[in-house]
Structure formats: structure tokens, C-alpha cells
Design a protein around this nucleic acid. Structure first.
Lengths: 229, 229
DNA sequence: TAGTGGTCTAGACCACTCA
DNA sequence: GAGTGGTCTAGACCACTAT
């Protein structure tokens, strides 16, 4: 008698993939399945919740559990610290602080940072390097009101990317992935050709409705973000 | 007395964000925390497993639970059917089958598809449109041995994208995101300018170690993939 | 070897929602 | 109203690993 939810889950997936349960069909109630597999209902519940979490089934109280009609798959993408990313490739990380000034932020940035009192924000531009070659360019606006400690941070020693992770970890945020055509200035900074395509991440970070920073990260041409389904 | 793991989880996150538990520090054993919060150990276990799943803490048997030293955030990216993606923008979906031929696959593709018997594979090129305008170009190699039903699929009516989701749902796969510089031919197909940057997804799909298909999806310039942290 | 998390059980009550 | 999933409890045993 198998009692592990992992094993049960695999068997349930088999029954779905084999077509025994077709798309959109209703499968037995978890109490019945628990009896069938000889496990406690809580165990079957964990197995089924796992499937629901992976998008394979849809569960509703009283409605029962159905095989997803349109299984939407999710890719879990890790957003690592850039130093770790470089070192994971077996290369040596370094970074170069290009700009660090407090200046007037353009209106859209002020809005995004929820700046009310001041129109100033901290502008930081950093080149991240792998084996001395440009790897990614980070351009960031930072809300100094939200993170006053920034003014005494040693940003020559530690990149602002790492500093933020250590200082305000566990923040919430949203992320946008795009492809950008490099203009002459960006291309030069990244050691690439003007017009090359750069994989780009935009990210805004907040902690309890308080926006901390918004940034754009341009990776050097050829960069690929890999993940599993 | 709060008894819900959701509430407990929020309180634990507060204690982390407030700095009461600093990065890398050990927090009490789940039995102790359960006593402190007046809940069963199973409940505290679910709360802590949730935090571990989000990368906020690291748990080890006997080693206890620690606040993550390098919290690696994960973005959960939905990989929808393109029809749904277009319709979610409030636009009308259509598609156009550009090519559909069985032909000799280049060696790297044969390797990726694990083709041994035959050197032939099905090549399918589809333009997905939103309100009649090109939205994305899908180029796909398909292992006919793995999915023989494809030969009788009505690919004029239904895009191969949708057909596969309905026929071999719940497959495993890997995904790569890149930025591509459009050549003249791609640009023309997408109604864009040569040299524009296209957000690109590469995806290989298999079911139980049996590779089914590998495809490249070029989105029109300006496309952005959004998600939450 | 002892302490920690991982997981299963059996039972209970609740929340939702379909008919 | 009744059937389903959601979740909590209390207890148990096990697996891993730091010491």
C-alpha cells in the first residue's frame, strides 16, 4: 500500500496522461480516491492540491475536481543576484559604478516611486562584468525617503544590487521581460554593436505598498534566461 | 488565537522584514513556534514550508530553520496558449499556416528530438495574429514518431499550438527566453523593421523522456512579458 | 545519539456552491 | 440542503544530520 503523496501524485498524473481521465472530466471525490489508494484523506488532499498548483486540475468545493481544460503551464524563473549569476557560469564577477547622483526624477518615475514630498531621487548606473567583460547594465531610480540608509552605503565596494538584497530583502515586486534594441550609448557600455538585441528586465520593488526602487537591466546580446516548465 | 497558517505566515514575514530575525539567523523550532502561536505543529509546518517555498527561509532536519542569506526570488511566469494571450488583451485572434512539411531535420534538431530511425520531422510555421496584425511567429519541429496523430490533425482550423495542448497536455519541458535581432525575412513576416528586437521563447517539450517537439516563438517588437515576483 | 523537520493518520469542523 | 474541498488538531513515526 503506497502511502506517500508523491507516489500517489505520480499515479494520478499517469491516469491523466494516459487519457483515462480526459480533459475537462470530473474525477472522484478526494474521500473516494483516498479509500481507493488506502491513504488518509489529508494525504490525498495534499496530492490533489499539488496537481492543482501545477495547473493540471481545477478544484471547487462541491463542484469536485476536474482535469484542466486549458492547462496553463508556469515557468518558475529564478531572479538571482547578478554576482551569483556570473559566478554560476564559472566566471569572475566585478562591477563598475558609472553614475551615482541625486537628481530630479522625470514625472513617470516620480509617479512610479510614489514621490510626493521631493522630486529628487537617487540615480544609480552600474555595469556588471564577467571576467572583465560587460555582462549587464543596471540603471536604477531609488526612493531615498524609503531607504535613507542608502546615503551611507559603500557602493564602490558592493553593488547596489547586492546592497539592496541585504538591506531590504523579501520585498515584493513586479517584473517585466522585454527585448530592447541597443542605442549607440547602451551598445558602447555593453561592448556590443549598435542595434543589437538585448534581453531586458524591468523591475519595480516595494515593501508594504511603499515603493523602494525601479530599475532596468540590459543584458549583453546573446544572453539567455533558461528555466524549466 | 489565530489558527490559520495564512495569518501565521504573514506574522512570520513581518518578523523577518522588521529585522527581528536577521539574515542567516536561526529561528525557533517549529514545535516551539507552534506553542507560541497556539496552533498545532502541522499548521506551523505548513506556514514554514510556505516560507521555504518562497525562498525566505531554508530548512534542514536537525539544523533547524534559518532566514535565507541570499534570498533568491522567483517569478512565476504563465505560458499561455497564444489564442488566450491575444484574447486577454481584448483583441481578436486568428492564425495563418505558413508552412507544413515533412522534411529532413538538421542534425542539431534531430539530436534534440532524439530521432534515431528517421531523419525526417514535421516542420510547421505559423503566424499568430491579433486583430489581423502579426503578433508572433511560431516555428516548430515535431517528432512524428512520438505524435503520429498529427498527420490527421486539421491544422488549418486549429493552430498547432492549441492542437498540441489538447492532444499532449501536461507534458514536461524547458524554456529559454532571449532577445533576437530580426532578419529581413522574420521582420517581414512580423510586419516589423529589419533589425528590430524581438522577445523570443524557445521551448522543447517531452513526455516521459520522449521528446515531442521543439519550437521558437518570435513576438512582435514591443511585446513585454509581465509577471509578479 | 539526540534534535529537528517531513509526513502520514484519523477525526473534526467549516466554507463554499451546486442543484 | 447536501456534497465537496479547505484546513485545523493531536498524535505518531520516520529520515536526516549536526554534534
Amino acid at each position: 500500500m503506497s502511502a506517500t503523496q508523491e507516489e500517489i501524485r505520480r499515479q494520478l498524473i499517469d491516469r491523466i496522461q494516459s487519457g483515462e481521465w480526459s480533459l475537462g472530466s470530473l474525477i472522484p471525490a478526494e474521500a473516494d480516491l483516498a479509500r481507493e489508494y488506502g491513504c488518509a484523506r489529508a494525504t490525498m488532499n495534499r496530492a490533489l492540491q499539488g496537481l492543482a498548483n501545477d495547473g493540471l486540475v481545477v478544484r471547487k468545493r462541491k463542484g469536485g475536481t476536474r482535469i484542466s481544460l486549458r492547462p496553463v503551464r508556469h515557468a518558475k524563473v529564478a531572479i538571482p543576484i547578478i554576482r551569483d549569476q556570473v559566478e554560476a557560469m564559472g566566471e569572475t564577477y566585478s562591477h563598475h559604478l558609472v553614475a551615482l547622483t541625486s537628481k530630479t526624477a522625470p514625472l513617470p518615475i516620480r509617479t512610479r516611486l510614489q514621490l510626493t514630498k521631493s522630486v529628487h531621487a537617487l540615480w544609480v548606473e552600474t555595469v556588471h562584468k564577467a571576467n572583465g567583460q560587460p555582462f549587464a547594465l543596471e540603471r536604477r531610480w531609488l526612493n531615498q525617503d524609503a531607504v535613507p540608509e542608502i546615503n551611507s552605503a559603500p557602493l564602490d565596494d558592493i553593488s547596489i544590487n547586492e546592497w539592496l538584497v541585504q538591506t531590504v530583502p523579501f520585498s515584493d515586486g513586479d517584473v517585466t521581460f522585454t527585448a530592447t534594441k541597443l542605442d549607440a550609448s547602451l551598445a558602447k557600455t555593453l561592448g556590443a554593436a549598435t542595434g543589437d538585441a538585448s534581453f531586458t528586465i524591468e523591475r519595480t520593488t516595494w515593501i508594504e505598498q511603499h515603493v523602494i526602487t525601479t530599475m532596468t537591466l540590459h543584458y549583453r546580446p546573446g544572453y539567455a534566461l533558461k528555466t524549466a516548465l
